[in-house]
Amino acid sequence: MEIFYQYLETISENFFDPKKRVFLGYLFSAFLISFMWLTFVKKEKIKQAVYKIFDKKIFMSKSAKADYILFLLNIIILMFLSPLLISQLAIAHFVFEYLHSQTFLTPLGIDINYMWMIPIFFTFCYFVLDDFTKYVTHALMHKVPLLWEIHKTHHSARTLTPLTIFRTHPIEGVIFVVRSALTQGIVIATFYYVYGGNITFVTILGANLFSFWFHLFGSNLRHSHIRINYWSWLEKIFISPAQHQIHHSIKKEHHNKNFGVAFAFWDYMFGSLYISKSDEDVKFGISETEHKYENNIIYLYLSPLIGIYKLIANYVSSKNLKVKKQKFIFNKQTR
């Protein structure tokens, strides 16, 4: 009973907590942005625009339905897995204690006059570094064949809705929880040490100031059929919804592009940036032909395990070491 209540709470938290991507307020702002985009920029009629935004074919597609079920089932799985994972607090304590034994980084004596800037600086750094580790993790999910087998689940979506973020294999969920805990633990402990505990987050409705803006300005449209693109110079700084949609494209030239979440400059720096073109049509998914079971829930849970098994079997049977390495560690062909 207790667990069931906790389960419902976690579900509702996703929609009522402004720290979460699919918080109702952000979903509403995403609707407003897409409405304005369609009526002002694309010059569509109001009725037509609304009809397009809430397209039944998309929200009720087999792919979207699988997203919804995965959302509900994964919460249960993570409820049991999360307590087993290393906590952000343990990481933070470890880092904080380590910092006392080194001399490279020393606590700053802060001039009281600049005190007001510290929370903003801290909040910004946290957001940027968090975004960077997301970029790295995402790139690895594509480049490492083992991880790609797991990340495939997300890319198997044929239609994108804001809830497609939950079309994620639980193993990937665990990887992201660990990434998040490591980032939080390391960044917070380091700042806490350097600023002698004088740090606070700048928040709006409890959410990080910059996350709040990111979500308010349409983060939910990344996974949608509303193709909003920016000026190309801006797409080098921020990832536009269209750019993430390109990331989901089945076209070969779109593979392994736009790993970024909020910022595009990571992709720019590491050569994976792809600027959107307004006339380019994008079809979502892994391959041209739909896999027979790609929206079957059991298949979605098992396919990474099957894929990993095949990889290992292949690895063991192949005798050539060079091939082994290529196949197993870094394989440019994955995506």
């Binding site: 976690t10 938290e13 996703n14 720290k19 991507r21 995965l70 959302f71 994964n74 919460i75 799985i77 993570l78 409820m79 999360s82 906590s87 952000q88 607090l89 933070a92 304590h93 904080f96 946290y126 997300h154 497609t164 973020i165 939950f166 079309r167 994620t168 294999h169 639980p170 990937e172 969920g173 665990v174 992201f176 929880v177 998040s180 805990a181 939080q184 633990g185 917070i188 402990a189 806490y192 505990g197 740090i199 606070t200 987050f201 928040t203 409890g206 990080n208």
Partner: peptide, 16 residues
């Protein structure tokens, strides 16, 4: 530090 971590919260769902 614990309070700050509390503030950012932990992820409870598997999400991309």
């Amino acid at each position: 530090m614990a309070a700050l971590l509390e503030e950012v919260g932990t992820k409870k769902s598997a999400e991309n």
